[in-house]
Nucleic acid binder design. Structure first.
Lengths: 239, 239
DNA sequence: CGAACACTTGATGGACTTCAACCACGGTGG
DNA sequence: CCACCGTGGTTGAAGTCCATCAAGTGTTCG
């Protein structure tokens, strides 16, 4: 098995497990179990974890796989608001509501933990770290959204795609996978929707980034050839 | 003095005070004072309440006036992420960080309450409703951001501006002002930046909405002539 | 009163969308 | 086994919406 740092993330390869295996958002999962009935759910590609309008009863914690969250309007317009992977919470945006505000759809098969919300609330009273971790997850989601707004509002198509790829690489690196070589989990259409573009535009831009030798693209497989160049195009200081 | 429902919101007119005056986010302000040293701050137009990078020490609660939150990149790109008015919290997006993630700038003079964060945390332990209210504010901010993403990602310039005006009207109505006649608190540039457009485009669209007799515009003064029409254009079912 | 700022309106160009055709891949079943 | 089809992805040509550049008006404030 290759080293963790160079493992290419894929549903059917050996996964780096590391400290994450037993950890739950940096908290003691055993302690949590005393308060919360944690249910493990398998999800398969295309399946939705919850739909907008369904009763909100639980938060979810992604253990493996990748899901998209989708905001949708009555008239059919829809917007991908984010992609969630291992270590991410799902459903926090519906806290305080009776019903889910958006939908969550699996892009590949994986596993999520269901955390009944009332029990979580009770657990928070006795576990300040849990409360802090949940609040931090909410605040981080807001910061992510604001970063996205900045990108969409100020960057052109090429910069948006570059910036998206840099972000994906960073997230894979955090999970112990390679930041240089990865498989995108979403279709061009989902990327495009998320970036407020059309899938043809994303496709064209990806080809152009390939021509520029910043990356190497083969459908969903991406290899980063010039990390600094990609970051610079993304409008970020090389860091 | 006119009835509350028809009061035009303006800094120098009589304000409807109603239940809001003594209330703090629907909570007992006197109880909060036992835990938290609440400081009242006057802000004047153009002044910034905090800057990105400054130490995060407190949340703020807007008592009067209007502020914009601005996300900014190292290279000078900036994005208005929202407008805050009476009853809104400020600074929640920086929870969990040492430093503020964005800046808050006053668009007109007003008053905000400073709520030292460590004390707020302590107060939350003894006041579950405060905890719930804060978490709800965070979740609501996320839903607002997602709604914005949906708008920016799926609507054209005309629809975005219409949808913005409908939202402004709704917020004024909630505060007890008229939803039919109001004064915008921000410059065209701020609106445009928020809507991911240029100020010339916003200006043109406003004129066009005027031509269509959906609204009547005179610089920052807006009168809604055809509410249903405006909502329909905004891509919402008339509600 | 004049200067700076905010807003409006026009003319032109460009970036992205739209429409369309085509290719690659993966599964299914004859 | 491979023909067949559906889905996802790529690429080209034409069109549109918004940005850009530019000029002019109105308002505010020192």
């Amino acid at each position: 098995m290759s080293t963790q740092a160079e493992t290419v993330a894929a549903a059917d390869t050996n996964l780096p497990r590391a400290a994450h295996e037993a950890a739950f958002a940096g908290l003691d999962i055993e302690q949590l179990r005393k308060y919360v009935q944690v249910t493990r759910h398998k999800v398969v590609a295309g399946q939705s974890l919850y739909h907008a309008g369904q009763p909100f009863t639980a938060l979810y914690f992604v253990q493996s796989g990748c899901l998209k969250t989708v905001e949708l309007a009555e008239d059919g317009r829809d917007q991908v608001t984010g992609f969630r992977m291992r270590g991410d919470f799902l459903g926090v945006e519906s806290i305080g509501l009776k019903q889910h505000a958006c939908s969550a759809v699996a892009l590949e098969s994986g596993e999520v933990w269901e955390l009944p919300y009332p029990a979580m609330l009770a657990a928070c009273r006795d576990m300040p770290e849990l409360q802090a971790r949940l609040t931090a997850a909410l605040a981080e989601e807001i910061r992510n959204d604001h970063a996205w707004m900045l990108a969409i509002g100020t960057l052109n198509a090429e910069q948006r795609v570059a910036s998206f790829l840099v972000d994906v690489a960073r997230r894979y690196a955090r999970m112990g996978y390679s930041a240089r070589h990865f498989i995108l989990r979403m279709r061009r259409t989902d990327m495009a929707n998320f970036l407020a573009l059309k899938h043809e535009t994303v496709s064209r831009v990806m080809s152009r980034l390939d021509e520029l030798r910043l990356i190497e693209v083969e459908r969903r497989e991406v290899r980063v050839l010039n990390d600094a160049g990609l970051r610079q195009l993304a409008g970020m200081r090389a860091c």
